[in-house]
Design a protein around this nucleic acid. Sequence first.
DNA 1: GCCATAACCATACAGCCATACGGTTATGGA
DNA 2: TCCATAACCGTATGGCTGTATGGTTATGGC
Lengths: 194, 194
Amino acid sequence: MATEGFDAVTVARTAATAGISVGLVQHYFRTKDEMLLHAFTTARERLEQQIQDEAKRADQEGARIEEILLNALTRLMPLDERRRRECRVELAFTGRTVDNPKLAGALGRSNSHIRGTITQAVQNGKECGEVPEETDETAAAVRLLALTEGLRLHAYTEPSAIAARETIADELRRVFPGECHHRSGEQDVRRPAG
Amino acid sequence: MATEGFDAVTVARTAATAGISVGLVQHYFRTKDEMLLHAFTTARERLEQQIQDEAKRADQEGARIEEILLNALTRLMPLDERRRRECRVELAFTGRTVDNPKLAGALGRSNSHIRGTITQAVQNGKECGEVPEETDETAAAVRLLALTEGLRLHAYTEPSAIAARETIADELRRVFPGECHHRSGEQDVRRPAG
DNA sequence: GCCATAACCATACAGCCATACGGTTATGGA
DNA sequence: TCCATAACCGTATGGCTGTATGGTTATGGC
């Protein structure tokens, strides 16, 4: 999918690549759509997990929340060949959102989840002093994620024109202008909802 | 394409919808790819033109450049059914960017063009006082367009979660904090390059 | 009036795809 | 040991697609 596009992924090729038969693919997935949906949700879940893991780790090391977010969001950009491929795959899936409501739903839920993570991070920033009290953390998260995703899109077709990391860093500097007053690492970027 | 996706656009259906024969479609476009590329570039050119037209008109009425950009960028958002359809079509095309270099090139060029328009607007804002001298107009344009496109993407799958216009307005307020000192309407948002 | 060219049509075709189907082999609990 | 179930295979098939082909009708310059 990364190199030849969404349509190049046929059941037969998928089976061949996996070294199994078409029948076995059918054994696990009733339809091709089911298979693709599984692939997409799995990939997104892994992505969400990676972001949270990295955030947690950096947080325990006592890093600034601003820095944690910078790394987490930068890792989404197509900065090396591996990421470029990931972006291509996601773009291919996103395009199918148009005629596949299940994919659209999965994408929406995943984005909501990531936005929630960012919202929590900004809120934590408030509590530790990096973020001003009057900041609307939801709005800030919407802005941050939208900017990131837009940069991804543009960086993919025009890598030269976009200084992705610097642009994200700029935005984060605006959201996190303050100093943290307890840099010990007790908090978590994403706390349990309850 | 807006409702059934990219693949639903077959040569036969296109011909039928246009009320002509398959042969006639082939008479004007040697291949289906050629037809699709033409459709995409035409649509993008129209989009670019609309933005510039609106900017020019508003500018002649002596509007603030900030306001002009707000309207121009807001018109890209999926706020009504018509725009939603436009967004869906563009998303479908964008997804094909992955395996169609010509589409990718066209999209890149079009985005560059729009970014150029925005850059020029910010620069004009500098000259008239709305934008601080130290602003990097290219970076500002990259940010603005990326934010807009990201919001489009998210607003499409989760309209409720995104206050698109307000978010763009926020960003513009940051870029255009000053007052214009010659609100007479001599300038143009996009001047000829030479 | 001539005729190259453009506009236009219907159909044939070869290829590819998702899925259905009917089958065989392993596995693990009763 | 039995046997339901899971794991696994190969192939047939019907549908759809882009495109090639071979044609007819209009048009407009000379």
